[in-house]
């Protein structure tokens, strides 16, 4: 798994390195897909689609979800260390979140995040209207697709959580693309909810 992290990291990190090394977007997409498939243990087992359809997908694949998330966390930590090498941050939570919305997002997705909302009590909602890593999913169709898209999203959750942790703002991060009210997918729009852990 370390190699997957390595590759994903160079994918995300190299773009902003002084040497301006760039990484093909498609490669990142493929790598993420492959990592998901590997972690779900789906290699060479096309017949076992039932467990991806299951209502309790999140409990069923608990450890795979945690591993993908922690991979993202690792990359997020290291990448943030690099990105704020020359940037002095005051240590306020809002500044850390702004850093993620602007600098961090620009580095990973080449755009700033679209919307940031906060209740000023430790909760931040980040809305990304065109989330590149899931832009080609169409998870309205079946529960399997929806579960897999959500699973892939956990890597990005980990990225954000790692970045927050490195900036000394330990937090929990959740992401979803499902509108509970209308019971429809909002893809490619995705929202991340960051909740600071109270010290």
């Amino acid at each position: 798994m370390a190699s997957a992290a390595a590759a994903a990291q160079s994918a995300a990190g190299a773009a902003g390195a002084p040497g301006k090394r760039l990484v093909n977007d498609v490669c990142v997409d493929m790598l993420l897909l492959e990592a998901s498939s590997y972690l779900l243990g789906r290699r060479g087992k096309p017949g076992e689609a039932e467990d991806l359809e299951a209502e309790n997908f999140r409990e069923l694949h608990h450890s795979a979800i945690a591993r993908l998330e922690s991979l993202g966390w690792d990359v997020g930590c290291r990448l943030t260390e690099r990105l704020c090498q020359t940037k002095l941050l005051s240590g306020e939570p809002l500044e850390a979140v702004k850093f993620i919305c602007k600098d961090f997002w620009t580095e990973v997705f080449r755009k700033q995040i679209d919307k940031l909302q906060t209740d000023h009590r430790g909760t931040f909602v980040l809305r990304e209207l065109n989330f590149k890593w899931l832009a080609k999913y169409a998870p309205d169709k079946s529960r399997t697709d929806r579960n897999l898209a959500w699973f892939t999203l956990q890597f990005a959750c980990g990225l954000v959580r790692g970045a927050m942790a490195t900036l000394n703002q330990p937090a929990t991060v959740k992401a979803d693309f499902w509108d509970e009210k209308t019971d429809r997918s909002l893809l490619p729009a995705v929202s991340f909810t960051i909740r600071l852990k109270q010290a």
Binding site: A2, A5, A6, Q9, G13, D74, V75, C77, R78, E81, R82, Q85
Partner: peptide
Amino acid sequence: FYVNYQLNPFSPL
């Protein structure tokens, strides 16, 4: 140096 060291995915955090 430290940042470069951290960028190595095999170095423990």
